[in-house]
Simulated scan of single mutants.
Amino acid sequence: MKILYFAWLRERLGRDSDEVSLPDSVATIADLIEWLADRDEGFALATANRKLIRAAVDDELVDHQTPLNGARTVALFPPMTGG
């Protein structure tokens, strides 16, 4: 699965994406964020306030309880503002 990072999340991590193979225990966006935080201290610090992290699965905005069910791409980003 490809994970894309945007805006200040990308800047804090120093990268714009990761390619990962998920264990069976990672079933939702929330699980994914926890799993990434457990593996990477920088990610854990950047996502300490999980309420600020938004997600999209295969280009569709989703909440943290959304199942990953065969997702190819997950994008993680801070809240967006209109304009």
Rank of each mutant, 00 (worst) to 15 (best):
Lys2Gly: 13
Ile3Ala: 03
Ile3Gly: 05
Leu4Asp: 07
Leu4Val: 10
Phe6Glu: 06
Phe6Arg: 00
Phe6Gly: 02
Phe6Ala: 02
Ala7Thr: 04
Ala7Lys: 01
Trp8Ala: 12
Leu9Asp: 02
Arg10Trp: 02
Arg10Asp: 00
Glu11Val: 09
Glu11Gln: 03
Glu11Met: 07
Arg12Thr: 14
Leu13Glu: 04
Gly14Trp: 03
Arg15Met: 07
Arg15Ser: 06
Arg15Phe: 11
Arg15Gly: 07
Arg15Val: 06
Asp16Gln: 12
Ser17Val: 15
Ser17Lys: 13
Asp18Arg: 05
Asp18Met: 09
Glu19Tyr: 08
Glu19Cys: 09
Glu19Gly: 06
Val20Thr: 02
Val20His: 07
Val20Tyr: 05
Val20Asn: 02
Ser21Cys: 14
Asp24Ser: 12
Ala27Arg: 10
Ala27His: 11
Ala27Trp: 15
Ala27Val: 15
Thr28Glu: 00
Thr28Ala: 00
Ile29Glu: 00
Ile29Val: 05
Asp31Cys: 01
Ile33Pro: 09
Ile33Gly: 08
Trp35Phe: 08
Ala37Phe: 03
Asp38Cys: 15
Arg39Met: 07
Asp40Glu: 02
Glu41Lys: 01
Phe43Ala: 03
Ala44Glu: 04
Leu45Tyr: 15
Leu45Ile: 13
Leu45Arg: 15
Ala48Lys: 11
Ala48Ser: 08
Arg50Leu: 09
Arg50Glu: 06
Arg50Ile: 09
Ile53Gly: 01
Ile53Thr: 04
Ile53Gln: 03
Ala55Cys: 06
Ala55Phe: 11
Val57Phe: 03
Asp58Ile: 03
Asp58Phe: 06
Asp59Glu: 12
Asp59Ile: 12
Glu60Gln: 14
Glu60Cys: 14
Val62Glu: 04
Val62Phe: 15
His64Ile: 06
His64Gln: 08
Thr66Ala: 14
Thr66Gly: 10
Pro67Leu: 07
Pro67His: 07
Leu68Val: 07
Asn69Cys: 14
Asn69Trp: 15
Gly70Tyr: 11
Gly70Met: 08
Ala71His: 06
Ala71Glu: 01
Arg72Ile: 12
Arg72Asn: 12
Arg72Met: 13
Arg72Val: 12
Thr73Ile: 15
Val74Met: 13
Val74Asp: 10
Ala75Phe: 07
Leu76His: 00
Leu76Ala: 00
Pro78Glu: 05
Pro78Arg: 01
Pro79Arg: 04
Met80His: 13
Met80Thr: 12
Thr81Leu: 05
Gly82Ile: 09
